[in-house]
Design a protein around this nucleic acid. Structure first.
Lengths: 213, 213, 213, 213
DNA sequence: GATGAATGAGACTTCATTCAT
DNA sequence: TATGAATGAAGTCTCATTCAT
């Protein structure tokens, strides 16, 4: 064979993806030129087309990976439906933060560049997103049936929670004053309050700490 | 002899602004071409340059107006610092929703197109935004001092609240099942929960209704 | 108004068309670059797009004009169906040569660049061409019915005649030894022979001369 | 150890040539990409450069072969100069058709892609073509001297005959209503007429049939 | 107050070609 | 014998912008 299978090429493809994520997050899909992207990877612009058929495919690849990654991880992290809704909600909250915090660029893309997608691609990503959102809504609805959660209008609350949690990635910096685990605690307290959980019900596991300013 | 001063020209300028807001919201600043914009207004592309020196100025004008409009309105709507924090928080919440709901496009721009701004312009807008955010943080801090609100980490909570409220414009449709006033009630309940207000403390004014699903 | 109506713009459009005809004839549609074309007209490449939406439209415009021009002229030159077929055939022959000789480049394009057309465009041009060919076939068939012409397989002969006459533009040069009118005479003699007209029947009008080598 | 010398490689080279002929005929030299060609043969693009130094060489190879093939076959088929000109002309006509009919793609290339040749290459091919044309002209001139043929302006007639005969490949389809032998008969009748051969003089050999419509 | 004509830069993309393996 | 990776040039086309009218 010509070269160690998959060695060089796959590395290049990954490098392109990484650079694209960084650059699109920084300046936007439309504003990113293929030449600029190639330069970041240390290639001629033409080389990119060995790995992606066009610019849109790069964006779509990024967003699709982001969503599939999210759904896969959530599948493994979620608590079974038999568990009490408050526990499931806390699990969701902490998972969401833990998953998103180190993926700020991907999150950003997922919100900002949806409109740069082809209609077909948009529908696909939108479907994935909705499926995630529905999982949260289902927890809130279960809690309401059990009488353990008092979320007003579960679907609305679900969106509100996700918007709030995701907004986190907009400003959180690892170098700031808060550790991820402190952030997790703060946000869980906020979410708990939103669904009517009394303070003492919120305590759980060792991660819950009193939040500093 | 000429037309009534300011008559024709100002109308055209407003038309450009309106069209720009609509089109940038729909497809993004980078993706909007001056020719497309001009066409929407029924002008030749060159005519726009009578009203704006360049494309960036259009965007900046839109964002600046949006923020100044927000700050001005808030100045008039806010309760004096002497009033109890929970009331001031409710006032903020309801104001924010009431102000943003009919301005979905402007809100969208303010979040999505910050990165399309020149550094100078970005700083100016960012400053305005921060000033608004600080007002909310100040209320939460006051509540904490008073002992009337239990927001964890006020600055964090302020951001969380704003992210949540603003996210509303992403999905809310006037034609949907919820009236603006119902939405206001739901979100106020959520915010109240976040800062530890007990259910009975939340009731206020005639707009508070029990939320439908 | 801004400028004398239609003055500058139309002149430019015509110049583009002329240059395109010349250059495509010389080096082929695929091999012609928009930049090269623009340069020939003394414009920047972008200016061309004010007049033609894309490269294909330039080619199509050229071919369509060529065919419509041909059909219009033929409509005026043709003899009425009541006249004897030999006369009508001679009319066709002389018309074809007279029309094509000064349009060598257009003829060339019409034969060589059909394959560069979009399927839609191809169909349209092909239809026009077939209509012209059919007129000749109709003359040959009329002659066969009358007994005045003995063309074997009229449709085949029609194609053969047209191929022969059109081939003329490939090599004929005004600066060569033959005048157009001599060429006309020679080709008419050839065509007459093809359909079995005896030498004495061929004489007609003052243009028929004995051809030099 | 390696394969039987000349085995694999020659087959591949022939495959490339075949594919090139087909594809260039279909879409043109400029429009054919090396990658597309390689794909048709089932190779990587780089592999072609083992067999041809560059794209131009492929085209030149095709055209040169076509012409040499024609000249060689003609050398064998031609009648000696001692034979009467009408017989030699019929021989030429029938040979030309018989040779070209099954080589429509090569003929097409020879006419359409001359302009894609390098000047050097063009001159060489043009020379070969002229040599073939001259053979026909020589026959016509001999006939004129003998008094057996009355072609007006032999060189002109030679070109006219060749254009007419070659045009055949443009529309003839094996699946159509005419057999090659019928086509041959029709065209020979046409050529005979062009040079003033009376009907009874044209009959010759078993292939001459009366032509169907 | 507005436009038609034009431009130079730069967008995405494809091409023929090379070279190490 | 063939390929995978890469490149530099060039392709078509769009863009924000200018300026005489």
């Amino acid at each position: 064979m010509a070269r160690r299978a998959g060695s060089q090429g796959e590395k290049t493809e990954a490098a392109i993806r990484d650079a694209a994520l960084k650059l699109i997050a920084r300046c936007g899909y439309e504003a990113l030129s293929m030449r600029r992207l190639a330069e970041e990877v240390g290639l001629g612009a033409a080389a990119i087309y060995r790995y992606f058929p066009n610019k849109q495919a790069i964006l779509m690849g990024l967003l699709e990976r982001h969503m599939l990654d999210l759904l896969t991880s959530w599948e493994q992290a979620r608590l079974p439906a038999a568990r009490p809704a408050p526990e499931r909600l806390e699990c969701f909250t902490r998972f969401h933060i833990r998953h998103h915090l180190p993926r700020a660029e991907g999150v950003f893309l997922s919100y900002m560049e949806l409109r740069s997608l082809t209609p077909d691609n948009f529908d696909r990503i939108e479907g994935l997103r909705r499926s995630y959102e529905s999982d949260l809504a289902a927890i809130l609805e279960a809690g309401r049936r059990e009488g353990s959660l008092a979320a007003p209008a579960p679907r609305v609350t679900a969106r509100a929670v996700i918007a709030m949690l995701t907004g986190l990635t907009t400003w959180y910096r690892k170098s700031g004053p808060l550790t991820p685990s402190e952030v997790e605690a703060i946000y869980w307290r906020l979410v708990a309050g939103m669904v009517g959980l009394a303070p003492q019900e919120r305590a759980s596991g060792p991660e819950t700490t009193s939040a500093p300013a």
